[in-house]
Design a protein around this nucleic acid. Structure first.
Lengths: 234, 234
DNA sequence: CATTATAGGTGTCAAAATAACACTTATTAA
DNA sequence: TTAATAAGTGTTATTTTGACACCTATAATG
């Protein structure tokens, strides 16, 4: 079993930063930690990596446990390895972040974990170095979303341009000119206009769009300039 | 010591992908593995994370052992955690990549590890999943260098515009128009023109430049478009 | 039924950035 | 003196950008 006999084995955890958009605000899914140390404090959803389980598998297992769903956009963010980060025992945490449409998962959160959505502006005190993780994830989200069409993962399948712009404005904490915004977004060819309108948020109604999946996948890695000067908004 | 008593502890390694530029080619520093399994095969420089040591500290220790130097540009790339990746025992590897001026370190490589530089086009067979690591690092280098002035880390303190262009062309395996290239690079304000010329590579000689360190640090995170369509070159 | 309030949707223009393109210059070796 | 070589530079047409203001569709109101 232990073939590299002289080496020290270390606890490895996975923590998930789960971003959700409710159509208005960008939020984070947090849980009340169920065991010591720091039992009862707010925390990212995490767990230890099990034998025979890859990092991705661990992250997906944890996400499934919390939200009840898989097939959510998720990517590895960073490995946090400060030896003091967990005061009880040295633990390395490999952090993932996920993006999802909050409304889709609202009613199926596992009660077991006392999970709750918090607006990014009102994050409670978190355990350990979880604030550092969240900050890095926010920076990464902004960075990546300024270049790649990643924010669609936070929206429902059908969405309107005002909703999309609202999401961008929420992420970058600024506002954009709607004429320039729609020109830039539509020029990517990623969106298909539907005939149906959303009549909930205005009298006139706003046309729904959906992603042109084929185009989306093909162009996902292309570098687009969604945000003029992303660093102005950090 | 083991407070989370029911959890499995795992071996954690750090592997370093060390890119070096010799003025002509982009190369990778590899070693002959000194222990089983796969003893004698080419490998990235790596080692196990020690108790009380952070990930960054482990990566720097490993780099120091191999090249004899610290203060080299290095960043974390990804945590590789496929449970089968090391056939002897499950090991998670947190991978870092470093950029350095190959000529600066040429003569001080530790003999102990039988280290050698390999052009990226002629990488030998590597152990485990080290090829995946290298491929991810190359993609990351291209991605990042298309947006940020990161390639200067591969050059000596004084360098000429033709040398810099040559490096970009090596990284992207293409060629650029030198008029447009120099316009774009100089427009960043990152470079200071020196009065001295490099007379080695031409009769006329090419002016040396150096980084304007202050400007470099202030603008490092800004997104610049060094490469028109980076994805065309992947 | 006419009016009003509201958010959605669209076009122009000047400025800036880009990509394509070719000639002159400095220097050394012959 | 000449020839060879790589360095260095400027123009133009096209595209992209950012700033800006008005009209439209609809539901609610009186």
């Amino acid at each position: 079993m232990h073939k590299y006999s002289k080496q020290t084995r270390i606890l490895v955890a996975v923590d998930c930063i789960i971003f959700g958009f409710d159509g208005n605000e960008l939020k984070l899914l947090l849980i009340k930690r169920g065991f010591e140390p720091q039992k009862g404090h707010w925390s990212l959803m995490g767990g230890f990596v099990e034998p025979g389980e890859s990092m991705d598998a661990a992250a997906n297992r944890i996400l499934l446990k919390l939200t009840g769903l898989d097939k959510v956009y998720m990517e590895q963010l960073y490995a946090f390895g400060n030896p003091e980060r967990d005061p009880l025992e040295r633990t390395i945490s490999v952090v993932y972040f996920a993006l999802l449409d909050l409304n889709k998962y609202k009613d199926q959160l596992s009660d077991q974990f006392q999970a709750a959505w918090f607006p990014l502006k009102k994050i409670p005190k978190l355990i350990f170095d979880h604030h550092d993780m969240v900050n890095m994830a926010r920076a990464k989200l902004r960075y990546k979303a300024s270049l790649h069409p990643i924010l669609f993962e936070l929206l429902p399948e059908k969405f309107t341009l005002p909703q999309l712009q609202n999401l961008f404005e929420e992420v970058y904490n600024t506002s954009f000119d709607k004429r320039n915004f729609s020109r830039k977004i539509l020029s990517t060819g990623l969106l298909l206009k539907l005939t149906e309108k959303d009549k909930d948020s205005s009298r006139k109604g706003a046309f729904y769009y959906k992603l042109d999946k084929k185009h989306y996948k093909a162009n996902f890695h292309n570098i687009l300039r969604f945000i003029p000067n992303p660093n102005d908004f950090i």
